[in-house]
Design a protein around this nucleic acid. Sequence first.
DNA 1: GCGTAACCTTACGCACCAGTAGGTATGCTC
DNA 2: GAGCATACCTACTGGTGCGTAAGGTTACGC
Lengths: 212, 212
Amino acid sequence: MSSTPTFKRLPRAVREQQMLDAAVKVFSRRGFHAASMDEIADDAGISKPMVYAYLGTKDELFVACLHREGTRMMEAIAGAAAPDLPADERLWRGLRAFFGFVGAHRDGWAVLYRQARASQPFAAELATMRGRLVDVVAGMLDHALRAKGREVRATDLEVVAYALVGATESLADWLADHPEADPEKTATRMMNVAWLGADQLLRGTVWHPPAD
Amino acid sequence: MSSTPTFKRLPRAVREQQMLDAAVKVFSRRGFHAASMDEIADDAGISKPMVYAYLGTKDELFVACLHREGTRMMEAIAGAAAPDLPADERLWRGLRAFFGFVGAHRDGWAVLYRQARASQPFAAELATMRGRLVDVVAGMLDHALRAKGREVRATDLEVVAYALVGATESLADWLADHPEADPEKTATRMMNVAWLGADQLLRGTVWHPPAD
DNA sequence: GCGTAACCTTACGCACCAGTAGGTATGCTC
DNA sequence: GAGCATACCTACTGGTGCGTAAGGTTACGC
């Protein structure tokens, strides 16, 4: 008569992942504040105190989501863009991996870049990760430049890298909002913008504002 | 003895602007949900029921903020980038106006692009405005292309415009986080990335993915 | 100088939600 | 099969914040 045989007891590690899955889903749908711990627990098929027991408070839970999704993304990119490749090849592979990740983990993307950025305490966590990405891109550009015997001020380089990362994130948003779109094709388009622009910069071409 | 002589009664239009100023400030600092109507009312130097009487519920108030800041921004850009100028000049003036606006209205920027994007109901409102910006940029590129007798698929154009807008927004974030940075210089940097990239695209140069 | 309409206030009801107290069941070890 | 650790639950509290009811005060028309 005790008719709840389907719900088995599961080891902690498994339940934690289920909870994180649910949390990412709910956070991305509702936003951090509007998401309720009850809904997350419910969605994970578990009761609320379990969430608190395993993952801690709401803030800690969100940081845990941020961390998991961020790590996954960085690994996907780093695994694809080996440092010994030529710059354009590296950029291409990195972009392809990135858009592939976003296409496959739209919820995770939303949590990372739409939610985290909105509220102060988490923005820092995100800024660190984003900073690492910017550094990678800036390092790539710098490397290519030095190979040509040219030098560029570090700040300029950083800002250019920032712009490229921003453009990429923007297309990621576009991709997340267009389920029919192809990640590979999006990566190609981004490559056109980024590389053809970067190529010119690498050649030393500089645009300067017209005189008033 | 009634010692509140400094607080005068003010006409509705004035109070509404004060409330919107306070709301933009608080929303940008706390985020939409964490912002409380009490704090906004307090910051505006008025009591809460007045806010409800003039601007409606919290949601409606936020939309009103979004609307005002968005309109201001669009006007600043549209006023600077006259349609009869050559493409590079238009782009430059538009960018300069944009970064000038962000530099001068950091709170408004935060409300628009950090808060609004985070939660579903408002994202649509923002997407409309952003879409108008993308259309302007895409139209500019298209115009320049046709002048050279070339044509590009509308989707490609839109995606490129999207990337450029994204890169610009990203630098705007960077600017908002670096109070010491100069909007004009940031605009120049963006111009380098955008124009040199766009210029290559306009020449018909295309990057394509390497064979596996 | 008095009515009235707009401006403005204090004080509260009600709902929602983060976090917890305290208890039950299940499997594992010896 | 006793003992124990771990998985899991129901049911609550306390706090916070949206939205409002009901009443006070100032300016302005006449």
